[in-house]
Design a protein around this nucleic acid. Structure first.
Lengths: 337, 337
DNA sequence: GTTAGCACTCACCTTTAGCGAGTGCTAACA
DNA sequence: TGTTAGCACTCGCTAAAGGTGAGTGCTAAC
């Protein structure tokens, strides 16, 4: 596959990097001067003709320079990449994560924003699947009369709440007692088990049927959380900075694609380490001019999610990959306490 | 102020509505045919010349039709508005709110999304100020060894959590006991009082100093929640549908403005009922081509927030105002249980 | 007060022409 | 055999030029 001699590789690398920077077709003269190879533009032209024949370069029209193909980006990512972040950038990126509370949901939505700010592209965050979560605790807290706040805490530290009407005979103390009892009964059961169990009880009637069915319902809502709710998008407007999207219709099409979260789910399927998909590799024709880079993160006891960045194929791969690697580590560290 | 005879009003109304629909300068012929007044275009031209002199219409150039000025929109909103939503639209808008859990934060972020979908403009949501919140309950829940999840519930039913390291001598039972004691001690105190009180205790040292200072810290974070965190923006990409923003630079400028939340705070200061600000009335030159419509919502015991919509001055005022009115009512109803 | 008629304006679209960055090819050179 | 200078050629881009038509203001008649 790598049938490229050293010089061709250097030329290709120079072209890719120049194009990533400038977004204009790269001419032979430019490369002759900047590559440092010390050969004339004519020589570069010959090499470029070869590279085009091999499928690494594309000529938009006869009298323009060349632009890299998906295949060129792929080679670039696999073999030609340099370090993408300077140490002080790394440091400042880390600092985003140090001083914050670690409430899982906040962290994740903050993460989408942070990633988009750090990379200047659009960020995607996939939260771990929640159907196999277990109950860690359950609390009923009085608010107003005859209403209580029901809180379910899962083993991942996720908190969900809803308000319930309860019998007005239940005061703070009895709610406290019920909470304790329920927590003991339901701890370590999966959400599904909780539902099954409680719908059974509730059917028998009794004083706190309302509470029990309320719990079952909330558990059901958490569990049935559709997969599409697991996707968060951050900084979609960042693409407006790139001339690829100077045409509003394109920008709108891109944003519309981001709205259809089902399709994003496929992009975000967690993989081993930082994964890059370029153009046609994504397998969605509405994203064929985009690249998607993802990285997994972990959340204690095997729950796994993913973070990612999406942008034009002309992406600053080195920087984005470094950033994702760093952020996914920080995230895993924070979420595992 | 309303020195317009009936015919001028009708003509102005026709112009505004045509322009809202078409976004092209409206000519006299169009109005002559569509207004139903049965007068010729020449007559309309005379009237339009008058309206222009009075500051209601603007002529982009000599040979174009007229477009409404901010002043025209103001008159339109104050006096010429018709019903904006059909009954079935109302019904479908309401249905957005019925079947959902009422977790305050979910409801509000969902609301931003819903509003932007309903109106096709950009939605803004301002959450009530949190500095004067009171503690309703406090819970410590074991997760893993020597770590616990701390949850603070406020009197508005808002829930905030963070993870803490705790002494490993504290098991589930003792955490439960501590929670109960703390809840009793701290209930109905303001977040500020809680901080003052606990920093005092924690300074004395003792076994659960870590817990106490953790609570103080979280209370501090909730309280010090910067005002800018109170703003949520939804559907910013909707503006890409409007030809006013066909130029990407404009779209980007708009989105950048939305990022600067401090300035949005001014726009969202809750007012009595549905409030409309048009163009120059907004008082921000980067939004001088926009209109902002807001409505307040209530959240039990006097906490008040606001929802709003922002878009080009050529906005479908009737529909948006109706929608905001409806949504703010629904929201208040849900949030007050 | 209303309307038909008319000269006039000017944004918008299309066409045309010129520029220049960049190419491929050829022939000469090391 | 690889490299390079030279040159004719291509073609997207920009600016200028011309034509079109929607819409106007004004005048004079009804």
């Amino acid at each position: 596959m790598v049938d490229l001699n050293q010089r061709k590789q250097l030329i290709l690398q120079a072209i890719v990097e120049d194009y990533i920077r400038s977004n204009t077709p790269v001419g032979s003269r430019t490369i002759s001067k900047k590559s440092g190879l010390g050969v004339s533009s004519a020589t570069i032209r010959n090499e470029m003709a070869d590279l085009e024949e091999m499928g690494y370069l594309i000529q938009p029209h006869v009298s323009a320079g060349r632009i890299p193909s998906d295949r060129a980006y792929r080679l670039y990512v696999d073999q030609l990449l340099r370090e993408g972040m300077r140490e002080e950038e790394r440091e400042s990126a880390r600092s985003y994560f140090t001083s914050r509370v670690h409430d899982m949901e906040d962290v994740l939505s903050l993460c989408a924003q942070t990633l988009s700010e750090l990379t200047r592209y659009t960020a995607l965050v996939l939260t771990p699947r929640q159907s196999d979560l277990k109950v860690a605790a359950l609390h009923l807290i009085p608010v107003g009369e005859a209403t209580a706040l029901l809180i379910i805490v899962t083993d991942t530290g996720m908190v969900r709440e809803t308000t319930l009407r309860v019998s007005d005979r239940l005061n703070a103390d009895s709610l406290f007692a019920i909470s304790r009892m329920l927590t003991e009964k339901l701890r370590d059961l999966s959400l599904r088990q909780v539902q099954d169990m409680l719908y059974g009880y509730a059917a028998h009637g009794g004083a706190d049927a309302r509470v029990l069915s309320g719990i079952a319902e909330l558990a059901g809502q958490i569990e049935k959380q559709t997969d599409t709710d697991r996707i968060t998008v951050g900084g979609a407007h960042n693409i407006l900075h790139y001339p690829e999207y100077a045409d509003v219709a394109r920008a709108r099409a891109f944003m519309d694609t981001l709205e259809r979260k089902e399709s994003l789910l496929n992009l975000m399927r967690p993989q081993e380490g930082v994964a890059v998909r370029i153009g046609y590799e994504i397998g969605m024709k509405e994203l064929q001019d985009c690249a998607v880079i993802t990285a997994p993160y972990h959340m204690g006891r095997g729950h796994v999610g993913a973070i990612g960045v999406i942008g034009p194929t002309r992406m600053d791969y080195a920087r984005v990959m470094d950033t994702l690697d760093l952020v996914s580590r920080e995230l895993s560290a924070i979420l595992s306490l």
